[in-house]
Design a protein around this nucleic acid. Structure first.
Lengths: 224, 224
DNA sequence: TAGATTGTTAATCGATTAACAATC
DNA sequence: TAGATTGTTAATCGATTAACAATC
């Protein structure tokens, strides 16, 4: 399939695409051939207008009255998310969270393959998380070079995170996905993505505490 | 300390407050008594204007030239995040992710205390994650009622998530923090917060794939 | 004092939402 | 056909950013 290249897709749209993909895949498994923005919107409690606009960002064309061909839509979303090619990644930190992430089978469907785990605890070195072997963190750089790793996942304690991030950037890693509760400094050009439990909890905590501004501006799907 | 009540704080501001809190606490540990918006902004690579505006949402008053008294600022942030009172919570799903979350000590500093874990696997029932005991999921409702639980964390597989969410809402839980890769439907009035690994990964994946719109509109700290 | 910083009001920016013609 | 849906352009909304007087 040839994908029409439009301008860059806004981040809020990117964030909704995985949900669309899940819903559409579910329909496909039920034998549905055509999906409309209305159907997706109802399932996710969004407006059809927003779904339509988001889908238009993927460069796909629909047909009035019937919607979008389901296989084309799936392809277009996967392509725009960059999930059509497998990304090999490493994870540093083999504690509870590291184990949860390295062993998470769901990553397969995102094209994310964690092929090495690293820890500074020599007792863990040589062990496995699922099928992923644990190496000593001092061998991270050579592993990255030998396997042309572009993505690194950080799951170490907060105080160790900046050092690992710097080392990742220094050996050529282009994207860093940080789970440590710390804001990291990385060189320009290195893509940094946080998944900060404190931030997520802050929103629900503040909402429980008292009503905070939610409005309709931020759709429910943006919650994280 | 008396906290001035202003209007509801915008979600983007709420999301930045935990980072401010971390930075300011770090300064406090170094003996700093006054903190300016400029200092926080430089540390987090944000603009001083944004930090100042965010801080003003907390209702605290600063002093020109010197900034904000550090203890007052810490108090005000904690208060507005709702982290000044401990929230007792349960977690359902004692797999890798559930174990990582239930055993995560960092929650203490957010005022989050997980006091019970639930799983449908009878082999796990009776065991512990850290200090948290694992109960059978069928006892969840009575536990919630007996302990006046308001917050539930979902860490079960995608296909089980909706059922757990419905059960949580039915027994009076007010806030649901969902880690399952599934969009949930909950009754009006129940607060839903997602932490969806697919969504987080989508952003970094799409950025790695090709340049996407980042701009300066979304500050780096919003990355998750 | 001079200069840095606060606090507030206005301008800007971009995502969301509305409107509506085109179409199958 | 009638009606639902797409695709696009314009309006709205609210967060970000700029501007600037007040202040210690």
């Amino acid at each position: 399939m040839i994908h029409k290249t439009l301008g860059p897709i806004p981040v809020p749209t990117i964030k909704r695409l995985p949900s669309y993909l899940r819903v559409v895949k579910q329909y496909k498994s039920e034998g549905v051939k055509w999906v409309s923005a209305t159907m997706i919107a109802e399932e996710l409690r969004l407006t059809p207008i927003q779904v339509r606009k988001d889908i238009s960002c993927t460069g796909i064309e629909g047909r009035p009255k019937v919607g979008f061909q389901i296989d084309d839509l799936i392809d277009a979303i996967i392509y725009n998310l960059g999930w059509d090619n497998t990304t090999d990644a490493i994870i540093v930190g083999a504690g509870h969270l590291g184990q949860a992430l390295a062993g998470y089978e769901g990553f397969d469907s995102y094209g994310l393959r964690i092929i090495g785990a690293f820890d500074h605890n020599k007792k863990k070195v040589g062990g496995h998380i699922g099928k992923v072997e644990i190496y000593h963190v001092d061998t991270m750089e050579s592993f990255v070079l030998n396997n042309r790793i572009r993505l690194g996942v950080i799951a170490v304690p907060a105080k160790a995170a900046q050092d690992i991030a710097t080392r990742m950037a220094d050996c050529g890693i282009l994207g860093i996905w940080n789970f440590a509760p710390r804001d990291l400094k990385v060189p320009d050009g290195v893509i940094l993505q946080r998944t900060d439990l404190a931030t997520s909890f802050a929103v629900i905590s503040a909402k429980l505490r008292r009503e905070i501004s939610v409005g309709e501006y931020y759709a429910p799907i943006i919650d994280d």
